[in-house]
Amino acid sequence: MEAEKVIELQDVCFGYEANEVLHHISLTLHRGDFAAMVGPNGGGKTTLLRLILGLLTPRYGTVRVLGQAPEKVRRHIGYVPQHLLFDMQFPASVLDVVLMGRVERCGFGRYGHDDKAKAAAALEKVGLEGYGSRAFSQLSGGERQRVLIAQTLASEPKLLLLDEPGANLDPANRHRIFALLHQLNQELTILLVSHNLNVVSSYVSHVICVNRMADMHAIGEIHVNALADGDWLSIEHIQCPVTTPPQECDHTL
C-alpha cells in the first residue's frame, strides 16, 4: 500500500504581481519523507513553503496538505522560520517560547499542566532539558534554533517545515540540528529549505531542486560533488531546472 500523501502540489503557479516566481510545480511528499529544497536565492523555495502553509494562495493549481486545503490543517503543521527573524532581546524564558506552540490549545488564561508537560517533553527531545527557565535572549544561535524546533514539537505536528535551519550556525551546531531532524524523521514528515546540499545530503531522503520550476529526486539517484561552497548545481546525472522557462504561466483565476 502506498504511504499517505502528506503534501501534494498539482500544477501550481505563483507570482508576486507581474513577477512569476513558481511555474507549474507538481510535487508529492509521502509520510515519512525527509526532503530538502535546494536552489538559488530568489528561486522560490521560501515561497513554496508559504504556499504549503496556506499563507499564500496559488494563482493556478492546487495545494493539498494531509489531503485538505492547507489553512484547514495548519494546526498539524510545525513551521520553523529562519531564526534570525526573531527579536533577540525579547523578554521570554525558553519555556515561554516553547509553550507558544500550544497557544491555540490553552484557550484563555494560563497554560495547563498538560501543556507544560508537553513543552518539557519537547525540550527534552531537542536535548535542552533543564533549560526552561533560562532567558531566550541569552542562548546561542544553535540553542535558539533547537528551542524553536521544540516549540513546533510541542504543537504535536504531523509535518515539519523548516526554513534554512542550519543558516548562520557553525558546522558542529549545524550537524547537531540535522542529526536531530534525522531522528525526528522517524515520527514526522520533514521538508526544509537549505542553501547547502552538501550539508543535508547525508540526512535527507529526497532533494527538490527549485528554480521557478521544481524537480524531486530520491537521494539514491543523485551524486553530490563535494564543492567547498556546496553549490546546488553540482548534482550529477540529473537535470535540475536551471534555465528559466520561456513563457509565463498564462492561467489566471
Partner: peptide, 12 residues
C-alpha cells in the same frame, strides 16, 4: 509580540 505570524499558523 514575539512572532505575529505564529498566531496565523496556529489558526488564531
Amino acid at each position: 509580540c514575539f512572532h505575529e505570524e505564529g498566531l496565523t499558523l496556529r489558526g488564531i
